[in-house]
Simulated scan of single mutants.
Amino acid sequence: MQHTKPLDLLGIDLPIVQAPMAGVSSPAMAAATSNAGALGSIGVGALDAQAARTMIEAVRTATSASFNVNLFCHAPARSRPDAEREWIDRLQPEFAALDAKAPERLTEIYRSFVIDEDMLAMLLEERPPVVSFHFGLPTPGAIRALRDAGITLIATATNLAEARAIEAAELDAIVAQGWEAGGHRGCFDPDASDEALGTMALTRLLVQRTRLPVIAAGGIMDGAGIAAALKLGAVATQLGTAFVGCDEGLADDGYREALTAAAGTVMTRVISGRPARCLANRFTAMGSNIPDAAVPDYPVAYDVGKALNAAAKARGIYGFGAQWAGQGAPLARSLPVTGLVQTLAQELAEAQT
């Protein structure tokens, strides 16, 4: 099925996927994107099955078009009590400066879809049109059940080996996530050496070396970027940072202001425990000299990271947030979703003439 009507596979008219940004992409954002002819997405990896069902129902209330539901497939965190205690102690001065108390212990705040049978049962009942995976793949049994339910399945790859694993698992498409991309790296093993392939090189590599349709992701902010990825053989593009400033999103005021003033991004694991590209802020600066091995596993590290951000926000300080953004952040625009999608489509048409 190489590149055979891939947009029909996704149920869209435009080669644009709004990235499933957990904590930012709301049902309203996803529905507006889908209604505009692109693929809207919600990220439910940080939710339990009932909360995820509620989000899916909210999207369905606002659109009859196709949409995507994204899950996290990370390996469950290892218990590292000493490292976790040391991590809390390391951040204690930051809490003290905010007149706040650090957590006494850390917990695994998100459950991986790999072991979440309730989430799988819910998806089989709700049958969203598209389901996507980040950080790896679910079990073969889960893939088989979702495929048998008629759901289109896609997953993120950051290199050729991961793409070939997705192909071997018989999914329908691959998201080629370049080094430029904002948010969490989709790498299957966060401790393995990262090839750090850029979006365009990775896209071309996967187009040539795999049989599945490729969706390019990372640093794409306008129609010219979309056109460039399509020319390299991608069937569609996934944009996240471009949507962060949209009215329908859940980004807080500090995140939006930081995006508007974006001076650069940093790849860091200190916020969550996995490598992720973030706007340079107080948290990334604090973590610039901390070795990866000192950071607890994802999402255990995120437990204290979220607590520190909450304490800071309560005092009007936004510099400890997970302000995920790609290298194209300076090109971000603040528009309603419909206006952004229409602008992207117009720019794409102009770039292709």
Rank of each mutant, 00 (worst) to 15 (best):
A22Y: 09
I109F: 00
M29Y: 06
K5D: 03
R333N: 01
I271K: 03
R60W: 00
N281F: 03
R256G: 08
C73L: 08
D252I: 09
A155Q: 11
A163I: 11
I271D: 00
L206W: 02
V24K: 07
E94M: 15
T54I: 09
D247Y: 12
V244H: 02
P291K: 06
E126P: 00
T268Q: 14
I151G: 04
A216Q: 07
M221P: 02
Y255D: 08
F113N: 04
V207F: 04
T260N: 10
R78F: 01
V214W: 06
I154Q: 11
L239H: 04
E162N: 07
A31D: 13
E86H: 12
G45A: 10
P190V: 12
I56Y: 02
L137W: 08
T241W: 01
E350Y: 05
A102L: 11
G219H: 09
G326D: 04
F135W: 12
A312R: 07
Q238R: 15
Q327D: 00
R144T: 15
L202M: 08
G223F: 04
L239P: 02
L335Q: 13
P15V: 12
A351H: 04
T63R: 05
I166T: 12
C73Q: 07
L232N: 05
N68E: 09
L137F: 10
M200W: 12
R53A: 14
A96K: 15
V235G: 13
L153D: 06
P81K: 11
A100V: 04
A28V: 15
G178D: 11
D8P: 00
M221Y: 04
H74K: 05
A310L: 01
A19P: 01
G273D: 03
G182A: 09
A217E: 10
A169D: 13
T4W: 00
A285P: 00
L212F: 09
Q346Y: 07
S25D: 11
A155P: 08
L39H: 15
T54Q: 14
Y255R: 09
R78I: 01
S112A: 03
D89G: 09
P128E: 03
R144G: 06
A102N: 09
L47H: 09
A229N: 05
L340S: 06
L308C: 01
P76S: 09
D48M: 11
Y255G: 04
L232M: 11
N159E: 10
A38E: 15
N309V: 01
A145N: 08
L250K: 14
W87P: 00
A312F: 04
P103F: 06
I88P: 01
G321F: 00
A293G: 01
Q92Y: 08
N70A: 12
A30E: 14
D13C: 13
D82F: 04
R211L: 08
S64M: 02
D8I: 05
R164T: 12
T203N: 10
R78Q: 07
A32L: 12
M200F: 15
D118W: 04
G219Y: 06
R315L: 08
V244Q: 02
G183I: 13
